[in-house]
Computed example of a mutant assay.
Amino acid sequence: MRFQGLDLNLLVVLDALMAERKLTAAARSINLSQPAMSAAVARLRAYFQDELFTMAGREFIPTPRAEGLAPAVREALLQVQLSIISPQRFDPTQSDRRFRIALSDYVTLVFFEKVVERVAREAPGVSFEFFPPADDSENLLRRGDIDLVILPEIFMPNSHPRARLFDDLHVCVGCRSNRQLSEPLTFERYMSMGHVVVQFGDSLRLGLEERYLREHARKRRIDVVVHGYSMIPLMLSNTERIGTMPLRLAQHFMKTIPMRIAELPMPQHLPFTEAVQWPALHNSDPASLWMRDMLFQEASRMVSPLDTAEALIDPDQHECYRLIGEAASSCGALVPHE
């Protein structure tokens, strides 16, 4: 079918080549033979009067013209898929939809585990594919390569819709045997101790506490760098080091790892909001609406870990939790319930 001289099937070919970057893989993804794919590439080049792709080994490297066309082509195909091809009714009990979600180990452990359990009961055919948060989440959303992103709201671009899930704040953690956490932690002592810090993504995005310290030209002693919050507790075991992590996750690990939790000696204890973001084109997609509603329902059931703190910590830390709770209330953050 042609539209103003362009065979619209060629847009599918261009989109597949941009995604796969190899002729054979692209042909397989859209059920074409390799000779048919080669012929389609020649027709694309003739229509756009550009090479569109050059060869580097076996990989197709897009030209600037192809790079410029790709976002509009992907958006047009997504619009057709969501508005014309996809069924308007979504029945989760019968669906085999796979949701592709970018989220951290922190969100997985304190929140999404419950979502997976509920979906297994209510929509057993629905599945998930998880990805670590990426630096180019805006492009992944725009291309429809991912269905949902869950991140602290401050890291989210403004080009796609989003909604709040839950709030948390940061605390200082250390091994139960760490003597320097047996009394209230001052900022000076916090800065002088050895730290285990977390960095995220390919660009090594900084944790909120490190961002705060650099903004105020303060430098602490960093002994270990890890790439996920769940690695921090293991790096603190039998050492005098400390780490900074969300309160919800700290309490999650306290159930199995002997740790101390101390009030973070920084203004407002660095509260943050975890939010969910989705492609603008999925805003009215029935499957996306169902999954987002599931997330909102589970987030509304989260209760404060302060209510269960006394069962998890030693008496010396009770005052710390009281102070953290007051700080969270004063800065407007909802302190998580477990």
Score class of each variant (00 low, 15 high):
111 F>R: 00
27 A>Q: 06
99 F>N: 03
32 L>V: 02
129 E>Q: 10
138 E>Q: 11
143 R>H: 12
109 L>E: 14
157 P>E: 14
105 D>Y: 03
123 A>D: 04
152 P>F: 12
69 L>N: 01
27 A>D: 00
157 P>C: 12
78 L>S: 08
111 F>L: 06
154 I>E: 14
28 R>V: 07
71 P>Y: 13
35 P>L: 08
68 G>Q: 13
87 P>Y: 06
51 E>V: 11
66 A>F: 06
31 N>M: 06
144 G>F: 06
65 R>H: 10
134 A>D: 07
102 A>F: 05
140 L>K: 09
53 F>I: 02
119 V>P: 01
114 K>G: 05
121 R>T: 12
90 F>G: 03
105 D>A: 08
67 E>H: 02
81 Q>C: 09
42 A>V: 07
52 L>S: 04
26 A>W: 03
134 A>W: 02
42 A>T: 14
158 N>E: 15
126 V>I: 12
46 A>K: 12
66 A>C: 15
148 L>K: 00
51 E>M: 06
77 L>W: 07
40 A>R: 08
86 S>D: 15
132 P>N: 08
123 A>F: 03
84 I>V: 15
122 E>A: 09
127 S>Q: 09
43 R>L: 12
110 V>H: 00
158 N>K: 14
100 R>V: 14
86 S>G: 07
58 R>F: 08
95 S>L: 03
70 A>T: 02
156 M>H: 09
67 E>T: 04
30 I>G: 05
124 P>I: 05
125 G>C: 09
27 A>I: 05
76 A>W: 08
79 Q>T: 12
132 P>M: 07
93 T>K: 13
153 E>K: 11
65 R>D: 04
104 S>N: 07
142 R>P: 03
128 F>K: 00
140 L>N: 07
66 A>T: 09
138 E>N: 12
48 F>N: 03
103 L>Y: 00
90 F>V: 05
46 A>L: 11
141 L>K: 04
99 F>T: 04
64 P>E: 15
109 L>Q: 12
35 P>A: 02
81 Q>Y: 15
140 L>P: 05
125 G>W: 07
29 S>Q: 08
101 I>C: 01
46 A>T: 09
151 L>N: 01
